[in-house]
């Protein structure tokens, strides 16, 4: 509940939670610039370089699938350092097969969304475990290597995860491999103070990863990392899905409407008189003078 700001952090030891998007529909749809295997070889080199940067660095990889999410790799748990990549790839292959077997509907039009909210929640649970482990622990951050489009149904869950990450001061970095920007991850990185990047040339992915996302949180204050993009925090109304500047909010369930309604379509409350903020404003200005 309270922010964990007062923890004693070791300066430059990192815990990196990497969320890999394994949505097969996305990797099929992307054009030939970056295949999944090429992507993996870039990521493996990146993970190895993180572990080489500091002996105490820790990496946890979580796969964000189409039907499920699971832990793929934990550098603290693996004993054999020479076979890291083999272990990781083996687990990933198992995961992809399991994910495929869970798929029920055969006809999916376009690249469906992957379960980002699930893997973010798992990563945050893992980070809480690290926080509990004692006053000396690596500084955690989350890196989302994401490509699938946003799933509208995940909005509330992802926002909950973002606020929880913000409260425990965990930045969420995001690297977008898809064609479109991800509004969810833009907000995630903006709110938590992480880096949001959509690489222009995907064939140079390793370079983006190693120059931008390999930097530990302590060094970030000395570096010129990609500036946060202006995030549009306007809301869209529930009735027409239009982005609006001004709107009406139901006081009971906080649904957003672009016009005044008689009854809330979400929670069914009846709205009495058409009273708006305007009518109450003059009253509030007539306040008793404040004792200073």
């Amino acid at each position: 509940m309270t922010p964990v700001a007062s923890k004693i952090y070791t300066d430059d030891v990192s815990l990196l939670m990497v969320l890999i998007d394994t949505n097969p529909f996305f990797w099929n749809s992307i054009n030939s610039t970056l295949s999944f295997s090429k992507f993996l070889s870039n990521v493996l080199a990146f993970l190895n370089s993180i572990l080489l940067l500091n002996q105490l660095n820790q990496i946890v990889v979580i796969a964000t699938g189409y039907n499920s999410c699971d832990y793929i790799f934990d550098s603290a748990a693996s004993q054999n350092h020479n076979q890291r990549a083999e272990n990781l790839l083996q687990k990933l292959e198992d995961f992809v097969h399991k994910d495929e077997s869970l798929c029920r509907d055969d006809s999916v039009d376009g690249p469906g969304f992957s379960l980002l909210s699930g893997s973010l929640s798992m990563a945050l649970c893992y980070i809480q475990k690290v926080f509990r482990s004692g006053p000396l622990h690596p500084r955690p951050r989350i890196l989302c290597l994401h490509g699938s489009p946003d799933g509208p149904g995940q909005y509330v869950a992802i926002m909950n995860a973002i606020f929880s990450a913000q409260r425990s001061m965990v930045p969420i970095d995001s690297c977008i491999m898809g064609a479109q920007h991800s509004a969810f991850l833009q907000q995630a990185s903006y709110i938590t103070g992480g880096v949001y990047l959509k690489p222009q040339h995907l064939d140079g992915l390793f370079q983006y990863l190693s120059t931008v996302f390999a930097t530990d949180l302590h060094s970030r204050s000395f570096l010129q990392l990609p500036k946060p993009v202006g995030v549009d925090f306007r809301a869209s109304c529930f009735c027409h899905k239009n982005t609006i500047d001004m709107g009406y909010i139901c006081s009971v369930c906080l649904s957003i409407f672009c016009k005044h309604h008689k009854k809330c379509s979400t929670c069914g409350s009846d709205f009495g008189q058409a009273q708006t903020q305007d009518s109450s404003t003059p009253d509030r200005k007539r306040k008793i003078s404040v004792d200073k």
Partner: peptide, 19 residues
């Protein structure tokens, strides 16, 4: 942690059909 801060069940969120 899940009930007081996260407000998401990681299990429900990471299975498409349970959702």
């Amino acid at each position: 942690y899940i009930h007081e801060s996260l407000h998401n069940c990681p299990g429900c969120e990471s299975f498409r059909h349970s959702k």
